[in-house]
Design a protein around this nucleic acid. Structure first.
Lengths: 242, 242
DNA sequence: GAGTGGTCTAGACCACCCC
DNA sequence: GGGTGGTCTAGACCACTCC
């Protein structure tokens, strides 16, 4: 059932097995899982190891515990996907659309005072400024401007930018993205936005300003996006307390 | 330093002490915490107990760990507040505004087919329908409609509704709110919305649809809100992976 | 090599829930 | 009372980082 000599941690293997049972429907919403002691006996591991697996699934929102009663499969199956911080690329894919980009501008400029303060760098430090129209199934969805300190992402090219920056940062540069703060507001399209997004002037648009941080708290980028109101709704799943 | 005979768990006491040291500035952003073994020795507890305290602080975003190196205080201090699922009341308070409500409608009606499906109840089951104008410092911020299965919140009164429903649900009914899915979009004010919110027709508004679930996965309520675009920005803090 | 966090064990006692 | 999850112990070996 589990491989104790595997490089994968035991708790992770147990976690995946229980997750698989929930996904496949062997365990249905509302069902009680076996007790921690039963799993420990079954897998021939200590109860603390089972607890680590189960606690991870609780924080993923797949199961929940009731003191003195047991552990149960969560009811909701819907919208399980839209947890956490996602890139435009991931966002489009989860909606079943094919993401692409049209590069408008790609340059290195000195940071303005405002940008420097936000990114916690010195004024005039070089930053990448990337302006892109972002498309889903070849239809314009958003106009996006990214500002990233140049020294954090050395070797950024137009080709990378045409795809996913997050993918490059995480998989090639091996930087660990931690969190982001987002501010979302409603506005009407300016003339420039209307032309770039191919919509009538004064149409509703969703303005999203994001500041992304690496896991160690270093600001990675500022993003300003203007999403077409008729083509895009922002969806998010949040938990009480955190 | 800690009280082992206290009803409060030891890990919680340690957690609070470290949190206090961060808040008070004894531990500054970027500082390395003492190692888990040192804390265990210092508090005369097992290392696993220390780990539980530290892991909780990591998931709160106050500190982060680096394999083989140590545990460090997070850099960001800003926007620490706007984590997690908040009620309108909590939201306004965190912005330094005094929340209040103007009740427009408070009635019990049979659930429509759409509502019944969303709330996973039978069609025609009684539900509360609550329409309120929500104000911050006596200025209209949003127009909100809540729909809640009547059997979940027996004893709901106009007085409760004039304050905070979440507060009543959690503290009086002792129900545990778990999570919510939210859909946010941009629109322009209809004539009705414009009048209720005291803004010009066609002004930008932020539409927020929320479905809230209890911890055991039972749908608690549907909320549709129309926020004034000029007075309200939606802010959120999200983590990568979750 | 010394120190760090990551994982794991084999027990233990407690409070809580349900019968 | 019997079962459940919550907390806790006193060890252990590992992979990783930094010097």
């Amino acid at each position: 059932m589990i491989d104790k000599s595997s490089p994968l941690p035991i708790y992770y293997q147990i976690e995946e097995q229980i997750k698989e049972q929930i996904m496949s429907g062997i365990l249905e919403p509302g069902d009680m899982l076996r007790s921690e002691r039963e799993y420990a006996e079954y897998y021939q591991v200590s109860r603390m190891t089972v607890r680590q697996a189960i606690n991870n699934l609780v924080s993923l929102g797949l199961i929940y515990k009731k003191k003195g009663s047991g552990t149960f499969v969560q009811e909701k199956k819907i919208e399980q996907a839209l947890h956490g911080l996602t890139s435009f690329t991931e966002d489009m894919r989860s909606r079943g659309l094919t993401p692409s980009s049209r590069l408008i501008d790609f340059s290195i400029i000195p940071a303005t005072q405002v940008v420097a303060k936000e990114l916690m760098i010195e004024e005039h430090t070089p930053v990448y400024e990337i302006k892109r129209i972002r498309l889903g199934d070849d239809i314009p969805i958003a106009f996006e401007t990214n500002i990233i300190p140049a020294n954090l992402v050395l070797g950024l090219t137009e080709e990378i930018v045409a795809n996913s920056i997050y993918n490059y940062v995480e998989n090639k540069l091996k930087l660990h993205i931690g969190s982001a703060t987002q501010v979302i507001e409603s506005a009407t399209a300016t003339k420039a936005e209307a032309e770039l997004l191919d919509i009538p002037k004064q149409s509703p648009i969703l303005l999203i300003e994001r500041k992304t941080f690496l896991a160690n708290g270093t600001p990675l980028e500022l993003v300003k996006s203007s999403y077409r109101g008729d083509r895009y709704k922002f969806m998010i799943n949040i938990n009480r307390k955190s």
